[in-house]
Amino acid sequence: MSKKNNNQYHPALAVTQIRNHVTVTLGMDNDQYPLWVALFTNHAKSTRVLHHIITPKSGKPAPPATDDEKEMWETIDAMILQWIYATVSTDLLETIVKSDSTAMECWKRIEDIFQDNQHSRAVTLEQEFSSTSMGDFANVSAYCQRLKSLADQLKNVGSPVTNNRLVLQLVSELSSAYQNVGTIIRQKEPLPQFYRARSMLTLEEASIAKAAASSALYVKHQDHDSSSPSQSILGKPPASSNKNNGNKNWNNKKKGNNKGKGGKQSDSSTGENTGGNTGSVSTGGAPWGGYGGWPWGPSAWPYPPCPYPTAPGYGG
């Protein structure tokens, strides 16, 4: 019989990485106790060691009958203690660790730490639960996760939150962008389960984000189409700049022509500037800007070309 027990395989002995199964770290100052308990007890059930930390409803199991059974029980119990120590913070570990302690005793010490002063803790949690608003969170998921965590903690201190209350609290503190879907959830009879209401809000959040992205892309394209580049690839000024410069030059020409008409003009027969202006020659209002109004002449000669008409022997 002892030989058979010695060779008997126990699934708890095959667990080498408890953090793969209990993925949260329980600390003195966090609110992960309900989640930690759920993950730990589920793993204990799957490895058939739940009775090492929680007394079954049917009563305490029979003590080991033989030395081999006692040795196996102590080995498994020590392994469960290692699981507990590996999934709690250093501060909490220093509080709960004791020599020659069983897994059940250690489990009870943790339970007392997180469930002491239940009424005071319930009042504090109730206030926080009722004042939780979506505006304090970055997205829908974080808001829903916080409400669910507070509901779990209230259940842990003996003040469970019903599904209807949880859903109503969820929709009562939504942001203005989610008021429409909140109204739909409120008007359902009966109220949907919390996970379904959370799913509806998550889908609405995705739709809002998609619409915002499309609107931003449309505005970007509109701005790009309505604006012209300040400089082309070849370094030329934009067309609007050329057009403005052209208008400016044409206006300057018109001003010059007007001055030429109203003021003293050069004598085209002698080539002398009768107005005393030696810097330029009036074009006589010719639009092409040639010398003396000739379209084939150079533009605005300051003096006639040599030989001058007044030079001796000119034309003789």
Rank of each mutant, 00 (worst) to 15 (best):
M1F: 11
S2Y: 04
N6P: 03
Q8N: 05
Y9D: 06
A12S: 15
V15G: 03
V24I: 05
V24P: 03
M28Q: 00
D29R: 14
Q32I: 05
Y33A: 03
W36K: 09
L39P: 06
N42A: 15
T47L: 14
L50Y: 10
H51G: 08
H52V: 03
I54K: 13
S58D: 08
K60V: 12
D67W: 01
E71K: 09
M72A: 07
W73E: 10
W73I: 00
E74Y: 10
D77G: 05
D77R: 07
I80N: 08
A86K: 09
V88P: 04
L92G: 06
E94D: 09
E94S: 08
T95W: 02
S99M: 01
S99V: 01
E105Y: 00
E105K: 02
W107P: 02
I110G: 02
D112Y: 10
Q115E: 13
Q115F: 06
Q118H: 03
H119Q: 08
H119K: 08
S120P: 02
A122R: 00
E126I: 02
F129A: 00
M134T: 01
F137S: 06
V140M: 10
A142T: 06
Y143W: 00
R146I: 02
V157S: 00
R165C: 04
Q169R: 08
Q169Y: 00
L170M: 13
V171T: 13
S172N: 08
S172A: 10
E173H: 04
L174N: 02
G182I: 07
I185A: 12
Q187E: 12
K188G: 04
E189L: 11
P190S: 05
P192C: 07
Y195S: 12
S199A: 14
E205Q: 10
E205K: 02
S207N: 10
I208H: 11
L217E: 03
Y218A: 09
H221N: 06
H224M: 08
S227T: 13
S230M: 13
Q231C: 15
G235S: 12
G235E: 13
K236F: 07
N244K: 15
K254Q: 15
G262N: 15
G263E: 12
K264N: 09
Q265D: 07
D267E: 04
D267M: 05
E272W: 03
T274L: 12
T274W: 06
G275Q: 05
S280T: 14
T283L: 05
G285T: 09
G290T: 13
Y291C: 10
G293Q: 08
W294F: 13
P298F: 12
W301H: 09
P304Y: 14
C306A: 15
C306I: 14
P312K: 07
G315I: 04
G315L: 06
